[in-house]
Computed example of a mutant assay.
Amino acid sequence: MSALLQARSVETAALPVIDISGLSSSSPETRAEVGAALRQACLDKGFFYCAGHGIPEGLIDAAFAETRAFFDRPIDEKLAVDKVQSFCNRGYEHLRGQTLEPGAPADLKEGFYIGPELGPDDPRVMARRFNRGPNQWPTDQPGFRPTMMAYFAALTDLGERLMRGMALSLGLPETHFDAYCREPLGTLRLLHYPPQPSDAAPNEKGAGAHTDFGGLTLLVQDDVGGLQVFDADGGSWIHAEPIPGTFIVNLGDMIARWTNERYRSTLHRVVNDSGRERYSIPFFYVGNPDHVVECLPNCLAPGEQPKFPPITVEDHLKAMYQRSYAPAAKG
């Protein structure tokens, strides 16, 4: 493997493990303790392992089983629910369908997009609002839809709980982001990474180096590994090894905008050099598309100006999708 794609293994303390069960406590002091732990992680790398999340292990296992079963299907069956057929970015994304790192080869992964299920008569769908509409569902896989919708609902709830913790971490009332969490957009992505080939193109990776677009990313990965996080302080990449029973949570670009980059949206990538198939399921908690994201006053030092103008969640996402799926990047 190219030296450019190598990463170092570190003690998991480099990415802290935070038990968030205290966010559901009746004790304000206990909830504040979780907020303080989140603050430290967000000021450092913006990545942490989330324990005590309450998502049933059986539901996670079922989501992985359905994910593997879908990607094992013949290509013509996967293309029957191709994302190009959807006006709201739902369905199957073919191998090398996205380029996350400008200037690098297309990502060596295939995926499947799922969002909130909205029918054709919904006013937001009729108006063709961004990323609003019906999902595409594979046929002859009866467990896929109910499993994914149950998982989607559970992760939406977890995202809302974490946003309350984020408010506490910033010294704000824990209800501060409630409007952002009302009728949120979320995207569930099922991802399959083939093994990195020995004759890979220069700088080819499973997922190119990128920051995430939205608010919070809640990632569950299998035991293969391959996620690498950039350590800006050390100037190198580190492995984010799977830890059973945890999600990896990282901050997206909207949180960085909100905090004037006090909180970090950190570069990360995937290099699957295991020789095995890798599967992961990230959930992108984005929030209400009409919510305006503007710098929080308590994140500005005296005399400091905001680095970013106010923007709605929807307009921010449109810009990010355009960058990632620009025609020149599709190849």
Rank of each mutant, 00 (worst) to 15 (best):
E11K: 15
G206D: 04
L15G: 01
N250D: 09
P138W: 10
T147I: 09
T217M: 05
A13I: 12
D273V: 04
G214M: 05
A301D: 15
K109A: 03
G206F: 06
T12D: 07
F70Y: 12
G234E: 14
G91T: 09
S25V: 13
L95D: 06
T147N: 08
F64H: 08
P105L: 08
F308Q: 08
S25T: 15
F152H: 10
T187W: 00
L155R: 03
E314W: 00
D76V: 10
I238A: 09
R278Y: 02
W137V: 10
P105F: 08
I248C: 08
F130S: 12
D290T: 05
V271D: 04
A7Y: 06
G208M: 00
S198I: 14
Q85E: 13
A329H: 05
P74H: 13
E241W: 01
E261I: 00
Q6I: 11
P327M: 13
L59T: 04
V313G: 02
D61K: 14
L59C: 08
A319D: 13
W237G: 10
N89A: 12
T312M: 14
K318N: 02
R96A: 15
K45A: 08
V125F: 05
A329R: 03
V293G: 00
G22T: 11
D107R: 01
Y180N: 07
F144S: 06
D122R: 12
Y92C: 05
A80E: 11
V224P: 06
P134C: 13
L59G: 04
Y151S: 03
D121F: 07
L5D: 10
K78T: 04
D231A: 06
I243Y: 07
A37M: 11
A326G: 15
Y263S: 01
T67E: 03
K83M: 15
A301M: 14
G35W: 01
R96T: 15
C42G: 07
G225R: 04
R264L: 08
R39Y: 12
G245E: 02
A41Q: 02
K109F: 02
G171Q: 08
A36I: 08
T156Q: 15
Q98F: 09
G159K: 02
L170V: 10
E110N: 12
P16L: 03
E261P: 01
E29I: 08
P116K: 09
T12C: 07
D231V: 04
G186W: 00
E101I: 03
H316Q: 11
R264S: 11
N260C: 09
V84A: 13
